[in-house]
Design a protein around this nucleic acid. Structure first.
Lengths: 146, 146
DNA sequence: TGCTAGATGATACACAGTCTCAGGTGGATC
DNA sequence: GATCCACCTGAGACTGTGTATCATCTAGCA
């Protein structure tokens, strides 16, 4: 759950025009607790009776990613998902049952990455760490319930 | 570069039948130094004059992944790739220019993952770390050469 | 208010991956 | 070596995700 205004402002600050479809997408994104796919955003917009083209959803998520208001992650089994997040380098722990995600910051991993770089001789420019498991709520909930 | 026999044996040991298409795919996979996509394997088979269906390539790579003879990784920009590897949990450092990859083992990351689990309350079942950069050869080679 | 660059929706397209199904074949058994 | 059948195959349809194109629309500036 994020402030829709923050997303809209991020776009505005970066010089993107503030259009109705962008506001709608920002609002839906902001209302999401966990990760979501482009298709889910399009479906929710349709469910709310808002007409937003599929291409526009992709374009808007792309814009939000550029301004670092959302992050694109790979999900196990292929495909992508997005998470609304703070604009600093970090990683996500994603609940594989309910989709809720939390952010963890970078500290020790950055050191680990540097050490791997030294050991392998590679000049490491990019890394991605994604963690999947069960959030506290889903651990407590009985198996299969959702 | 892996021993094609090792891949074929891994399939055999797991109870998979040893068919001509599987041997061909195993041979092509074994001949690869870096990562590769299913499409590349299919293309190389075609180039060698071996007829292997696209579905069969996917099925064989899937089987090889099951027996842990290859690992499926996500590449930046979406899509998947595979790397032939030893059957122990580890991660890959992939050269973003030539595609060559090296394996790094797990030690400190496992500890980091545990500590993230403790901190967030998540029960972490799965994690993936992928590192991208330039290998020593590509760092030495002039920009743009391949 | 008018203008224009940038945004839009519709649509076609590309591509990866999955599924189905009729026919083929590896390998166990005799 | 012959037989048999469960498993494997290729072909091709299908699905889902993401991109490209284009005519039309509109936010926001002068």
């Amino acid at each position: 759950m994020t402030d829709p205004l923050a997303l809209v402002n991020a776009l505005d600050d970066a010089g993107y025009r503030l259009t109705a479809p962008r506001r709608s997408v920002a609002e839906i994104v902001a209302g999401r607790a966990g990760h979501f796919t482009a298709a889910e955003i399009a479906a929710e917009a349709r469910a709310r009776g808002i007409h937003v083209g599929r291409a526009t959803v992709f374009r808007t998520l792309d814009a939000l990613e550029r301004v670092e208001a959302v992050e694109r992650i790979d999900i196990p089994g292929g495909g992508h998902a997005y998470v609304a997040c703070e604009p600093a380098h970090h990683h996500h722990v994603v609940c594989s049952r309910c989709g809720r995600s939390v952010e963890v910051e970078d500290g020790r991993l950055a050191a680990l990455v540097r050490s791997i770089g030294r050991r392998t001789g590679y000049r490491i420019d990019e890394h991605r760490l994604e963690l999947y498991g069960l959030c506290t709520a889903c651990q407590a909930a009985p198996e299969g319930s959702r």
